Amino acid sequence: MADNGTASTGTISWTEIPAQDLASAQTFYGTVFGWEFSTTSVGDGSKPEVILFSKGPTHGSLVKVEKENHLSPAMHPDNPEKKRIAVRVTITVKNVDETLETVKKAGGAVYLPPREIGNNMGRIAYFTDSEKNVMGIWSAA
């Protein structure tokens, strides 16, 4: 953050996570990462299409999408070796292995297993959430 309380130029200020089932995605991220949520309506306001989330300096939204508009390498039929990738968000955690266990209990799955990052930069793994989005987790140790 800049000194005046606004986001610094060049920093990521918002993350939107697509979801076909907003309630499922909200439960998943609340369980795994302790995110807090508030619902807002877009369009005619008849049903929630966006759920805002926050935790500390992290802010964003779960955005309702239809199946045909949901792009995810985990859902791509021609991606058996998990080589197709899209933009991925990586979330800092205390312990990658423990968080992956929580991910699985909350309805997600391991996408790419944990591995060490060179130069003692920690461990990283990738998972799919309840909506099959591919996300990353990282810990310093």
Rank of each mutant, 00 (worst) to 15 (best):
residue 88 R to T: 11
residue 17 I to R: 04
residue 20 Q to I: 00
residue 38 S to W: 00
residue 47 K to D: 02
residue 14 W to V: 10
residue 43 G to R: 12
residue 121 M to A: 07
residue 33 F to W: 10
residue 45 G to H: 01
residue 23 A to F: 15
residue 124 I to P: 04
residue 62 L to T: 04
residue 23 A to I: 15
residue 10 G to V: 12
residue 67 K to P: 14
residue 87 V to L: 11
residue 102 T to L: 09
residue 106 A to W: 04
residue 15 T to M: 10
residue 40 T to Q: 08
residue 64 K to R: 11
residue 96 V to H: 00
residue 115 R to E: 09
residue 40 T to F: 07
residue 24 S to H: 06
residue 46 S to N: 13
residue 87 V to H: 02
residue 63 V to I: 04
residue 80 P to S: 08
residue 21 D to E: 14
residue 101 E to F: 03
residue 18 P to F: 01
residue 20 Q to E: 09
residue 32 V to Y: 04
residue 61 S to I: 00
residue 88 R to N: 14
residue 23 A to W: 09
residue 33 F to Y: 15
residue 66 E to S: 02
residue 47 K to F: 10
residue 8 S to K: 11
residue 24 S to R: 07
residue 135 M to Q: 05
residue 55 K to H: 13
residue 114 P to Y: 07
residue 122 G to R: 04
residue 31 T to E: 14
residue 83 K to S: 06
residue 18 P to A: 01
residue 23 A to E: 15
residue 134 V to R: 01
residue 22 L to K: 02
residue 90 T to G: 06
residue 74 A to P: 07
residue 117 I to L: 14
residue 69 N to E: 09
residue 94 K to A: 15
residue 31 T to I: 04
residue 109 A to Q: 09
residue 130 S to N: 01
residue 8 S to I: 10
residue 91 I to S: 01
residue 82 K to D: 12
residue 96 V to C: 06
residue 16 E to R: 07
residue 10 G to W: 02
residue 135 M to E: 01
residue 26 Q to R: 15
residue 132 K to Y: 07
residue 85 I to M: 10
residue 101 E to M: 00
